[in-house]
């Protein structure tokens, strides 16, 4: 372990913490949230995400199925027949910028946001 190894480790920690902060920061200034389900790069469906919504969506592709629950402002892939089950193990997402990816089925569930403030229009 040389001096430069330690510098590299500290640098990478710094970069990744900064990156996580940026992801969070981008997510925090939205007041409207959407759930987008994307299959094969094209939009499958889109819902407004708030606390009242309660939906169960079944996405069926020729590769398999994913069952997505939207409930209490949270989104989770409840069931899937993909081989690695990463989408199910990912758990609950609720903030803009978060996403669940099912690589085998090429399904993405992502939360996006938009802000209606005047501030954002003036950009």
């Amino acid at each position: 372990m040389t001096k430069f190894d330690k510098i590299l480790i500290v640098f990478v920690v710094f970069i990744s913490l900064f990156g996580m902060y940026m992801v969070k920061e981008r997510a925090s200034n939205y007041n409207k949230k959407y759930v987008e389900i994307i299959v094969d790069g094209t939009e499958h469906s889109k819902y407004i995400l708030d606390n009242n919504i309660d939906k169960e969506i079944e996405v069926i592709t020729d590769k398999g199925y994913n069952i997505i629950h939207i409930q209490n402002g949270q989104v989770v892939v409840a069931e899937s027949d993909c081989n690695n089950q990463l989408c199910v193990r990912k758990g609950v997402i609720e903030e803009p910028g978060e996403l669940i990816v099912c690589l085998p089925h090429r399904v993405i569930v992502q939360i996006t946001g938009s802000s209606d403030d005047l501030d954002s229009i003036s950009y």
Partner: peptide, 19 residues
Amino acid sequence: ILENMNIFSYLPVMYLISL
């Protein structure tokens, strides 16, 4: 492949793991 740039938001976490 997925035509989605948001996947890069995984990267900071993965950098920490890769350390």
